[in-house]
Design a protein around this nucleic acid. Structure first.
Lengths: 229, 229
DNA sequence: AATCGCAGTATTATTGACAATAGAACGGCT
DNA sequence: AGCCGTTCTATTGTCAATAATACTGCGATT
């Protein structure tokens, strides 16, 4: 008899998975605007909403604070963090710098296995895009970029890049839902794969930087309309 | 009557300060080698050692894991993290890149207030160095660099830079205790202040990068002798 | 009418007890 | 003797009760 796997549960979730699930749902609720920037994230509310214990909700809030999309004030509580235009520009400045450097470090022409891997990820991305699966779009998109930049050979650089990708998630979210932006994004991914077959590192780096301009300026435009919603 | 400040305590520490103190001491114990790389960090042991509750010790371990100097494995425990030569090179590669970029972004010639601020910090640094106060040396040194790079104008870049400074703490620790390295470091700081008065951004950037070479190669040399202590 | 103090409420922070887990030591089986 | 399973111990992970804290609204006072 297996002592673990406590007696017949409807949802077969281990604790670790449950924790991950809470973070995932909380993140999703924030990114896709179900909790507006500035709105409070009360632990008890989230506990009932996600059917999780206080412990997991706390951990999730800590994690998301670290990621930068939640603001926690001692003895006050957590809120959805809002970024001003100035902050967004600064964040993107660093992200663009890291992106450019990472792209320049990718040895060209890229290996066949990398090309194949990226093509495969791109297929998944297109599938999710066609299915209008927001969460799936976001996940496959990030997987594509992580796989691409991993080819730079420096895992620490990739990690920093991921930090900034997570930080800019709230700004990119709307873009993931936009049909036009999605089509552009898809074309740029394919162009990246083409450039990986060539030798022009600079062109690749520039394309990667250009790739993030749409969501940045879109977000800046959006918050310019109403700075205090 | 003040309700806070619980009845007559020898050490007047609020909870928040206590948490910070635990982290500080734990960090110090690791950085200065009182806990060797790979050695286990058992919660109960640390609880008695620092006279803190499990909660604070846990938080501290989480924080230091995030900083990258502690490794935590689920249901196994925490250990002092060890970095291989390869990892060290990769970490420094990113740190050097960020440093160079930040330095190039500092507008030259720098404002008089910045020069004054850095000179003041440099005096503190020298004082701690003369007093052989290891912890003090480290703190004032980092304060100097943070103040310098803050002049680049992008707080997010500064934050990333700080992340990498924390990550390389274990490698720099020995250097802070070394008389020769300390003297060199001091001279370089003064040279930086001089360069801030001029217009040669590139020279400043190069100096900042050179500034970290000593501890890097020193650490690499040290672990080359005994890869598995 | 405005302000200050006070009690009440909402919310997070802390703690210690308890459960779950992994690794080690032991002993029986082949 | 070697191997496998079992129990035991050390350690971390989880939880729910309790303490601490900040916010809110009301009432008294000037």
């Amino acid at each position: 008899m297996k002592p673990q796997e406590s007696s017949g549960e409807g949802s077969a979730l281990t604790r670790e998975e449950e924790q991950a699930e809470v973070i995932r749902r909380l993140e999703e609720d924030i990114i896709f605007g179900r909790f507006a920037p500035g709105s409070r994230l009360v632990e008890d509310t989230l506990m009932t909403r996600y059917g999780a214990s206080r412990h997991f909700v706390r951990q999730g809030l800590f994690q998301l604070e670290r990621q930068g999309i939640v603001l926690r004030e001692k003895n006050i509580g957590a809120t959805v963090r809002f970024y001003s235009a100035e902050e967004v520009r600064q964040i993107y400045e660093v992200r663009e710098m890291l992106t450019r450097q990472a792209a320049l470090m990718i040895a060209l022409p890229a290996s066949a296995s990398l090309i194949e891997q990226l093509s495969e990820l791109q297929r998944h991305y297109c599938a999710k895009a066609d299915a209008q699966d927001l969460r799936g779009i976001h996940e496959t998109n990030d997987a594509f970029h992580v796989a691409l930049f991993a080819a730079c050979g420096n895992p620490y650089l990739v990690r920093s890049l991921q930090d900034y990708m997570n930080l800019t998630l709230p700004m990119r979210a709307k873009n993931l839902a936009d049909t036009e932006g999605l089509a552009l994004s898809r074309r740029q991914h394919e162009l990246m794969i083409e450039l990986l077959k060539g030798r022009d590192s600079w062109a690749l780096a520039q394309l990667c930087v250009d790739h993030m301009q749409f969501s940045k300026s879109d977000y800046l435009g959006r918050i310019a309309d109403k700075p205090n919603p």
